[in-house]
Design a binder for these strands. Structure first.
Lengths: 136, 136
DNA sequence: TTGGCTGCAAAATATTTGCAGAACA
DNA sequence: TGTTCTGCAAATATTTTGCAGCCAA
C-alpha cells in the first residue's frame, strides 16, 4: 500500500487524504467504476470528499496516463486502473463491464483509404453480451 | 427519395414533416452526426423543429433498428444510418468519425472464463488516430 | 377520429468550472 | 511559503420528460 503512495509521490502527484482514498480504491480495482461509483465508495470513510475532487482527480490521473477512460457505456464514463492491454465486454442489460484478456492485435490491418486519411494510433475491441445475473 | 418515405410508411412509422427532414438528412449520411448536428442541419429548412423531436425521432429509429448509436466519442452520442457491418475510426483531436470497411469477425474468439460469465451477442472494433486535417 | 407526434419548458443527469480557503511539499 | 488541491455552488452540456395542442393515417 505504501508502495502505491510512494510511486505517486515520486511522480510529483500531490497526495491529499482525498486523493489517497481515490488511489486506494482504484488500486487493483476491476469493477470499471464511474466517477459516481468512486465518490460513493470513498464517502463512507471520507465523508467530506466532494464530487468535484473525484472528477478533478480522475481527470488528472487520466492525463498522466495512470488510468484509462472507458467509452463503452453510452450513459457515462468508466475508469480502469489496469494499464495492461486488454479489452472489455459490457452487459447490455445492467451495463456491468468485464475484462477480456486476449490478444486481438491482428485487427490492426486497415484498408488503404483509411490509412491515407488517418494516422492510426490504436484500436479497441469491445464485446457486448448478457451477464449471468441478467440472464434470468 | 420517395422510396425512402414509402419504406417507412410501410413499416407504420408515422411521417411528419420533421421526421421526413430527419430521414432525408440521415439517408446515406456518413458523417456520424450527433443529435445536435441533425438539429442544426434540419433547422435551416425547417425552422420550427425542436430538439425534443430530434431526440425522440432518433430514439424511435434506434429502437426500430433503422439507425445505430455509436459509442466511440465519450462526449456525446453519434448516429449512423449505415446498417451494413463496418467499424469506425475516431480522430482523437477533432472527434471526427470515419468508416472502416473490413472484416474483423475473427475476433469473436473469447477466453473460456468470459464465455462462462457472459452470453456474447456482438463485438465492435474501434480505431483511434489523427485525421489529415488535424495532423498539422 | 384518434393515437401518435410536436414544441415548449422544465427536469434529470453528467460533468466542468470559479473561487476562497486549506494543506501538501 | 507557495503552489496545488478542496469543497461549495453555480454553470454547462446532454438527454429526457410532462403535457397541451396538432396532425397524419
Amino acid at each position: 500500500m505504501e508502495e502505491l503512495l510512494k510511486k505517486y509521490r515520486k511522480k510529483g502527484f500531490k497526495l491529499t487524504p482525498q486523493r489517497i482514498a481515490i488511489l486506494k480504491y482504484l488500486e487493483g480495482n476491476t469493477s470499471h467504476p464511474t466517477a459516481e461509483n468512486i465518490y460513493m465508495a470513498i464517502k463512507e470513510k471520507n465523508p467530506t470528499v466532494s464530487f468535484s475532487t473525484v472528477y478533478n482527480t480522475v481527470e488528472s490521473l487520466k492525463e498522466r496516463g495512470e488510468i484509462l477512460e472507458i467509452t463503452i457505456d453510452p450513459e457515462r464514463k468508466h475508469y480502469d486502473p489496469n494499464l495492461n492491454p486488454h479489452n472489455h465486454i459490457v452487459c447490455t442489460v445492467c451495463n456491468r463491464i468485464g475484462d477480456v484478456f486476449a490478444d486481438y492485435s491482428g485487427v490492426m490491418n486497415l484498408p488503404p483509404d483509411v490509412l491515407e486519411e488517418f494516422t492510426v494510433t490504436g484500436s479497441h475491441v469491445d464485446f457486448y453480451g448478457v451477464c449471468g445475473e441478467c440472464r434470468d
